[in-house]
Design a protein around this nucleic acid. Structure first.
Lengths: 123, 123
DNA sequence: AGCACATTGACACGGTTCGCATCAAGGCAT
DNA sequence: ATGCCTTGATGCGAACCGTGTCAATGTGCT
């Protein structure tokens, strides 16, 4: 549980404080769009002491996924929200299938989460 | 006030010819909406010889799911399309988890389909 | 401190999507 | 043939989304 980040001696270009303007420019989006996405709960950037939004790299990747779903696939924000919820559950149950522990408990857990996924789709 | 219901008293007829007006009234939708849904590939009713749409009970259930996703959740038709595709894959891989054959082949198949699901979500 | 610039939230304006209504042309059963 | 229904196409009003603009506040530099 030590530092999971790479050894940033000093030359790493990892800007830890990504403000909304640089994030928007880097993603090709409007800052207002990012604000609305947070307002809808699609992303959750941290806040500095002065209530300014700070985006992490994981959230940038999440925003890239959102942009793809909206621009390329033409999916609604409500649909993106539901799809991301499905993706979260999927990410959680993936190690249950790839894991080497083939106990009945994990299998039962897997079935349970799969049914939970079905509930998200109106089944 | 004429009885427009089929006269099959003694058994539940699985092969009813549900035309578009009956289906729309039973679902609380407009016939034009059902036509547009077929045009977008969301449902695929069979056709009679005169090119009239015939809906099965499975398609009625599918339309119920679509109506719920659109009306209650406010999801786009493109989002509904993607969610239904995810649901189809989910229905297919569910017996792989509940089945009692705990071979490595089925486990590998399960992981494969899970990754395929992830690709549908832009991961 | 002051000054310049970025960020905040709120509002409004085009463009698009959706369901619904309407229409003429043709199918089906009485 | 006479009604009723289905078909495809078109258009309209409402809602959604991205974007621009605005005043107020935060932030960094001199």
């Amino acid at each position: 549980m030590s530092d999971d980040r790479p050894r940033t001696d000093h030359a790493m270009p990892q800007e830890e404080f990504i403000l909304i303007s640089v994030a928007a420019r880097h993603l090709g989006m409007h800052p207002q769009t990012l604000r609305k996405y947070e307002r809808l709960g699609l992303v959750r950037p941290t806040r500095t002491l002065g209530s300014m939004r700070v985006y992490s790299h994981d959230e940038l990747q999440r925003l890239r996924v959102i942009k793809h779903l909206v621009d390329e696939a033409g999916i609604n924000l409500a649909g993106v929200q539901r799809l991301l919820a499905v993706a979260d559950v999927l990410q959680r149950i993936r190690p249950l299938a790839t894991g080497s522990d083939w106990s009945r408990a994990s299998a039962r857990r897997l079935t349970q989460e799969l049914d939970r996924l079905g509930a998200m789709l109106g089944l």
